[in-house]
């Protein structure tokens, strides 16, 4: 958070713009108007990023700096969401992230990559994905 603050001190206009964007996003969130960024969607479809078993995006192969930056940015946002929700559920962030990872792997589309319980990367097919034995069983959540 410190670099952000320093950056915004240098550019007050950016702060206002950022706040405006943030407010817009926050207002838009309940309407679920957000979708995946096109770059993120493409990276998923190409298998450049995959759903890790720990609830975060991972890299089946060495990523380009742009892909790495984008995935790490998403992972930071995911962690913030996990932390918030885990606290409300009185659970640890890792347990919440793991649970979300189970579900995120289940809702991968065929062709996307996911991390199996053995730590290897698999390409999702029409068949159910390989899940950790601790993942909740039952019907996968709706897309």
């Amino acid at each position: 958070m410190m670099p952000l603050r320093e950056q915004t001190r240098r550019k007050p206009a950016m702060l206002l713009a950022g706040a405006a964007v943030l407010a817009a996003l926050t207002l838009a969130a309940p309407a679920s108007a957000q979708q995946r960024d096109p770059a993120y969607a493409a990276a998923r479809a190409n298998g450049q990023v995959g759903e890790g078993a720990d609830g975060y995006l991972g890299f089946p192969a060495a990523p380009s700096p742009e892909i790495r930056h984008m995935a790490e940015d998403i992972n930071i946002k995911r962690r913030a969401v996990y932390a918030d929700k885990a606290e409300a559920q009185k659970a640890t962030i890792d347990d919440y992230a793991f649970t979300a990872g189970c579900l995120a792997i289940q809702r991968t589309a065929p062709g996307e990559k996911y991390e199996g319980p053995d730590g290897k990367w698999y390409t999702r097919t029409a068949a159910p994905p390989l899940l950790d034995s601790r993942c909740p069983k039952g019907a996968p959540p709706a897309q």
Binding site: Y82, D95, F98, C102, A104, P136, P141, A142
Partner: peptide, 27 residues
């Protein structure tokens, strides 16, 4: 440990599912 984690995961599953659906930009 596995049994305890499984119990926690079951408890969190529904909430985590909602979280994923509420944040389609990062999932």
């Amino acid at each position: 440990n596995i049994n305890i984690k499984q119990e926690v995961v079951y408890r969190l599953a529904a909430d985590a599912g909602n979280t994923i659906q509420d944040n389609p930009d990062i999932f």
